[in-house]
């Protein structure tokens, strides 16, 4: 019994990070129709940058976090302004393939710059754990994950639903041309979208490498996030916030109870099996947009 609860909590914490990364993913898809295959790579790139700031340059933790988020923002700006901007008017598939190429390019850069070993991330949270009622044992970093992602998602939800930029983003994702015709600067919205998306990637990178270590394979989180986004429904932010933690829990439970039966690996497999099943029965995802059809 204790075990199940522990797995659930751990999965929940990990799943929150999937949600965080998937938000960036979905924002870009919503506003411009681009599936950003580089999302996972951007996550790990930010983690490497964070590593350099803290371990290699010795910048204090809080400042390094802020600098990394700023680096994420800058990266988003550069990608949109100097790479994607040139592809306006080209088929969307060309842009999607470009993100894939860009992802490989970044991986090359990271191999050159930081090597291929697993680096250990700077200690963000104090080690140790607390035990609640002798049932659940929580270590501090998991608690921090939950709290931080929760707050980030709240901040994001307020930004998206209550501000003018958020409204402009929603309008643009509904109908780009109509948005332009009412005076919304659509290209600026795209830039903001990429910046936010890369900032969430940076936050996800800093958090996730804290338990997984810094290594290029962490980029796989991009595919997990993609699975979360597809299961939740590519247009649905609430869907992603719900599905992310659910996916994390399922992942940890399958690692705990299915791995012994099949010699491991279920942890990486089960999310995609779920994705497959959901896509067969609900191609637009569990919370995805049903196309509004008036009769």
């Amino acid at each position: 019994m204790e075990n199940i609860l522990n797995y659930i909590i751990a999965g929940l914490a990990n799943g929150c990070i999937y949600s965080l990364v998937a938000i960036g993913f979905v924002l870009i898809y919503k506003s411009s129709g681009i599936l950003n295959f580089a999302q996972g790579t951007i996550v790990i790139l930010n983690a490497f940058v964070f590593y350099s700031f803290t371990i290699q340059l010795g910048i204090p933790m809080v400042i390094a976090i802020l600098l990394t988020l700023a680096f994420g923002a800058l990266l988003g700006f550069v990608i949109e302004r100097f790479i994607l901007d040139r592809l306006i008017g080209q088929p969307i598939l060309a842009v999607i393939i470009l993100t894939l190429a860009f992802s490989e390019f970044l991986k090359g850069i990271m191999n050159l710059g930081w090597g291929t070993d697993i680096l250990s991330a700077p200690q963000l949270f104090p080690r140790g754990n607390i035990t609640i009622l002798n049932i659940v044992t929580l270590d501090y970093s998991r608690i921090a994950f939950l709290v931080i992602t929760f707050f980030l998602i709240i901040i994001f939800a307020i930004f998206y639903n209550k501000t003018k930029i958020g409204l402009a983003m929603k309008a643009t994702s509904d109908d780009t041309i109509a948005a332009g015709s009412v005076g919304i600067r659509v290209r600026r919205v795209f830039v903001v979208t990429w910046i936010i998306s890369c900032i969430t990637a940076a936050a996800g990178g800093i958090l996730v490498t804290n338990v997984m270590g810094i290594h290029i394979q962490v980029a796989e989180i991009g595919f997990k996030a993609m699975a979360v986004a597809l299961v939740g429904g590519l247009q649905s932010l609430p869907g992603i916030i719900i599905i992310g933690p659910a996916m994390g829990i399922i992942e940890f439970l399958s690692a705990a109870y299915l791995d012994p039966l099949v010699d491991g690996g279920m942890r990486d497999l089960v999310p995609f099996i779920i994705l497959l099943i959901v896509l067969i029965f609900r191609p637009s995802g569990i919370f995805g947009w049903k196309h509004i059809e008036r009769i």
């Binding site: 409204l167 109908d175 015709s181 009412v182 005076g183």
Partner: peptide, 25 residues
């Protein structure tokens, strides 16, 4: 202000949000 053919509303937004988009600029 160009009111385009075929009523290009923002389908997934509420009526009021639709109106507010016009004031963003």
């Amino acid at each position: 202000l160009h009111v385009m053919e075929g009523r290009r509303i923002f389908e997934h937004l509420s009526v009021e949000e639709n109106l507010l988009t016009g004031a963003i600029m």
